[in-house]
Amino acid sequence: MMVYLTAFALIMLGIAGMLFRRNLLKIIMALSVADSGAYLLLIAIGYRSGGTAPILTGYEGGPMVDPLPQALVLTAIVIGVCVLIMAVSLVVNVYRHYGTLDVSELRRLRG
């Protein structure tokens, strides 16, 4: 239960950070925190208490943790890293053009 709560707390924290921070880098960090919450949620869903690693060779009975969420999280982490790299490289370009990382300054496109 604790893990689920932590996961949701992380997601909420991330979303709140994206909404209330003004610095672009902090927004991206908040996005990353929200993503981590989602990963933790997936892992928690696959966990069986007292379970062993899900390897079939030499299996001696007893519960095994669900291997699928682990595979999913691995994929999701890779995707998350791609997004993070893209976002940070865009931030570099934003700084080049605008000289600031404040999102409220990033308002030339409107209307």
Binding site: L24, A34, A38, A87
Partner: peptide, 23 residues
Amino acid sequence: WEAVEAGMKYMIMGSLASTIILV
């Protein structure tokens, strides 16, 4: 500057939507 600003906004919004989808 236009491409960078638009890309940045698109990316942050799109990534938040993707996170909601993943959850």
